[in-house]
Each structure stands twice: as structure tokens, then as C-alpha cells.
Amino acid sequence: MTAEELYAKFAAQFPKVQKASVEVKGSPAYATLRLNSPAELEPVIEWLKGLGFTYLDIVTATDYKGPIDVKGFVMDPNPNAFLPEGATPQIEAPTATPNYPYREAFELEYCLTYLEEKIKVFLKLDVPRDGGKVPSLVKHFPAADWQERETLDLYGIGFEGHPNPTKILTPDFIKGYPLRKDYVHTPDQFD
């Protein structure tokens, strides 16, 4: 199966699910699709699983709010603080790129693999930044368990129906969700 054949199958089964405007580069065997609403996620996943996409690679998210707030870092954000001036090009604090489609949303990314056909499909789904919720995939893929917990821990996206929606990586006293672009570190007992 090639990516084009997969797009054709999708168009026949889910006419609303469109090929994403920004494709994931890497291999000709990567297909990228954009879902319109969280309600579409489970039917699409079930259908893909029936088709042979039995391996869940990644579950993650991206915050598209804009350039990162450097106040989110405890340390001095200048990575070349010890180098003399002009020794190595300095990296400036990230700034907004003109015309880049920043938006007030998290984009969830799912990647599934068809092991025999050597094809990967990337699903993208926008959820609102405040109180965004998506159905959990743990009952379809146990592999989603910890990855969804990680996304919950770092972004604060709710996964409905997750058996154990708790923090996994950050300590309990950390307030906020560190991978959000507007995260600001609250001083704790270690500062």
C-alpha cells in the first residue's frame, strides 16, 4: 500500500477527513491526515486498526500558541554564556515567524504503523487550549497509556476514559504544564 492508496481509501470511508496541509516529511510512505473533531478520532482509529495499522508509534501534542516564553526556563536561556563574544553564533530568544499559522490550539499527533506494508499514518487533531478533551485510546492500544499520561502531564490535555489519568514525569509540586509555550516556572523548594 502506498500513501496515495491510503488517501484514496480514506476519501472513500471518511470523506470529511482531509489530507493535512503540512505533511510530515521523512519518507514517501508517510501519510498525514487532519481530523476535524475529537468525535472522529475513535471511528478512524478503529477503521485503521481493522485495516492493519496495529502498531501505535506515538501520541503527542504541539502547542501552536506562538514563540516560547523564555520565563519558562529556570536557567539563563542563553546557551553560550561561557563563550567569549563572537566565538560562536549566539542563539537569540525565539521570535515569531511572520505568516506562520500560530493559533490558540494544541495539535495532537498520532502515528500508527502498518508493520507488514511498511507505511505510517500521522493523524492530526486540533483541540482548544482551555479544557481540551479527547477520547483516550487505551482500550484500542495499551501503548497509548503512558504516552497519554505524558501528554496530560506536559500539556494538560484531558483524555476521557483513561484508566489512570495521573502525572507521570514531572514531580507533584510542579504547577502548570511545562511544555505549553506560555509556561512560567513557579519557584519551588529547589530554587
Binding site: 503540512v22 505533511e23 510530515v24 516529511k25 521523512g26 508517510y30 508509534d57 506515538i58 503527542t60 504541539t62 502547542d63 514563540p67 516560547i68 542563539i91 537569540e92 525565539p94 521570535t95 515567524t97 506562520y100 500560530y102 499527533e109 502515528c111 505510517k120 500521522f122
Partner: peptide, 29 residues
């Protein structure tokens, strides 16, 4: 600006990187 995915067979398994660039000097994600 764009997105890419690469995966290799690391010593412990399938190690993958999902990278998003917004055209800046640092990875956006």
C-alpha cells in the same frame, strides 16, 4: 517551516523524533 519524522533502530528499540520547525533558529517542537 515544516514537520519531519525520523526513526532509527536504537539499541533499545525504535527511537523516533518528531520535529516541527516554524522557521526559527530553534525547533518549535
Amino acid at each position: 517551516p515544516g514537520e519531519s519524522y525520523a526513526h532509527v533502530e536504537g539499541s533499545r528499540g525504535n527511537l523516533g523524533i518528531y520535529l516541527v520547525s516554524d522557521g526559527g533558529q530553534s525547533p518549535f517542537r
